[in-house]
Design a protein around this nucleic acid. Structure first.
Lengths: 189, 189
DNA sequence: AAAGAAATGCCAGTCACTGACCTTAAGTAG
DNA sequence: CTACTTAAGGTCAGTGACTGGCATTTCTTT
């Protein structure tokens, strides 16, 4: 195996995040990112298919972890409980990424083009989760609805946890799922 | 008032949809769309901010209708029932658009860039619905979760209705919301 | 040391999108 | 009917994201 490559990739991610924060996504050129990372502009596009994707590399990991967690969750649970169990299994991923994730979320929130990409990633994950649910016998439509509702709760929990760290992500997760269950008239756990 | 403008806009939408279907989104240039519509390429960008948006003009209408429907829904209903009521109020929009919507959905499904935009539109609508729910006193997080779950059900219902027209959209909507309620352990209406 | 593969550099080109400026087709006031 | 107004379209030049092709460098392997 020749030149490491992975290092250049990390430098590109770092440089991109810095520049997007300093002068904004639209005011940053891929040539500038490459320059700060010490590589050619062409190299940027060898590591990332486009200017947005450079901020979305951890999503594949989360998706894989979630697929596995759903597949390995205990039997006999109602769908939402199964999902909650799976989300609790993977909550260490956002937890360990937090120092990098916080500025990243800030940039994404400020940039419509990046929010679009974030939604696409979320859709890919929920589709994967739905598929994993179907493999466990959950009906077609139920699987999709559960995956989307569950992801919405997970997402809300992370947002709340970022805004209020006095409680653990786990606590926020439990509360978000309580809120989700309450939608249909139930009161709580 | 000078030149109509709205006509050119319609021709551009028509031309874009045709070309996207004929040779694909990526293989279609904005110049070609403009040429088929009988206008200058620059004119295309006067009517639409980018190459994707040309397929997403009806979303604003749906969003406005939904906001109003949520605001005017009867009091005293559980959140999901209120949402179901609102969705039933606006179901005539997808119903009347169906002949145009079907090829459109086909193109969107085949094009990642267009699916991204569709997700962004959906997010804007669910945010608007959540806001409308909050105005009616629904709690912050519940509003967002309900809006997202409700939209997911609405979307599933439309997809099922497109695939199977033997039942009405209304029937599909009721079934989708039943499935949604069943997630938390309830059985149905 | 030689060879092969992986990563990068370099170059030319397409195309989405934008700003600036000019022209045309209506509608309106006189 | 003419002159004025104005929204809409045309033209041109330019930027920047992204791509294909080819040469070059840096490792690893034999």
């Amino acid at each position: 195996m020749p030149r490491s490559g992975a290092e250049a990739r990390r430098r590109l991610q770092q440089a991109a995040l810095e520049l997007y924060r300093e002068r904004g996504f639209d005011q940053t050129t891929t040539a500038e990112i490459a320059a700060r990372a010490g590589v050619n502009e062409r190299t940027f596009f060898r590591h990332f298919p486009d200017k947005r994707e450079v901020l979305f590399s951890g999503e594949a990991e989360l998706r894989a972890a979630l697929e596995q967690a759903v597949a390995e969750a205990p039997d006999g649970l109602p769908v939402l409980d199964l999902l909650l169990h799976a989300f609790r299994e993977v909550k260490h991923l956002p937890e360990s990424n937090r120092p990098f994730a916080e500025p990243r979320l800030e940039v994404i929130a400020a940039t419509p083009a990046l929010r679009e990409r974030e939604l696409a990633k979320a859709a890919a994950i929920t589709e994967a989760v739905a598929q994993a649910l179907r493999k466990r016998g959950v009906a077609e439509r139920q699987a999709m609805l559960a995956a989307q509702a569950g992801w919405a709760a997970f997402h809300e929990a992370i947002a709340a946890w970022i805004a209020d760290s006095s409680q653990s992500l786990d606590d926020h997760l439990l509360q978000a799922f309580d809120d989700l269950r309450a939608l249909t008239g139930h009161s709580g756990r």
